[in-house]
Design a protein around this nucleic acid. Structure first.
Length: 186
DNA sequence: CGTTTTTGACCTGCGC
DNA sequence: GCGCAGGTCAAAAACG
């Protein structure tokens, strides 16, 4: 169960019920998933999310504090295989994915992000971009990718929880509208 | 000139 | 062990 519920305004009904999710602005129409690693809803994996243990890289042995906002929830949902003796338990932060129908690639969720990578994804003509929250000490990451299947959809995956509040307050109605793509069935 | 983006190299896990 | 795919690093370039 997610101790991390997200509520969003329904673009069609207008029913807004999206109080405390950090991703409250600029939502087009979308769906949210929780850590749908490797889930294939259509034959191909949307995102090949893997579970892994972050290990310090390269010459730099950086101290990576264990910390991380660990969810008092479960990481169980994802370390599916195993549970054997002597296993190194893989700690994996839950990831949350959004499907947003928008023309805009860069969705402004109120946080400041620094791009740290971009990768071509297999079976996808659009690259996936990797961002990290620039707030000091906040290690939230997100990746953004446009679906080949439907170019109108942008898939955003968040990992981690912000340890701070939104610093940018640009939530004027016009601003939100400008980024929102209202979807009509015809 | 400080900050962010770009981009190729590097690392790691996984399947064969 | 090897190759592939995904994820990250970091130096250089671009940007404001």
């Amino acid at each position: 169960m997610e101790n991390y519920q997200m509520f969003f305004p329904c673009p069609s009904t207008g029913q807004s019920s999206y109080p405390l999710n950090p991703y409250s602005t600029n939502m087009g129409s979308f769906n949210a998933f929780q850590d749908f690693q490797g889930e294939s809803s259509n034959g191909t994996t949307i995102l090949g999310l893997k579970t892994e243990n972050h290990v310090p890289k390269r010459a730099e042995v950086k101290q990576i504090s264990q910390n991380r906002s660990s969810f008092s929830g479960d990481e169980t949902d994802q370390v599916k295989p195993v549970k054997k003796k002597g296993q190194i338990k893989k700690i994996r932060k839950p990831r949350y994915a959004f499907q947003t129908r928008t023309q805009v690639d860069i969705l402004d969720d109120g946080y400041r992000w620094r791009k740290y990578g971009q990768k071509a994804v297999k079976n996808n003509k659009f690259p996936r971009s990797y961002y990290r929250c620039t707030y000091q000490g906040c290690n939230v990451k997100k990746q953004v990718q446009r679906l080949t299947k439907d170019e109108g959809i942008v898939l955003t995956t968040y990992e981690g929880v912000h340890t701070h509040s939104i610093e940018k307050q640009s939530d004027t109605f016009e601003h939100i509208l400008s980024q929102m793509q209202i979807y009509t069935p015809f």
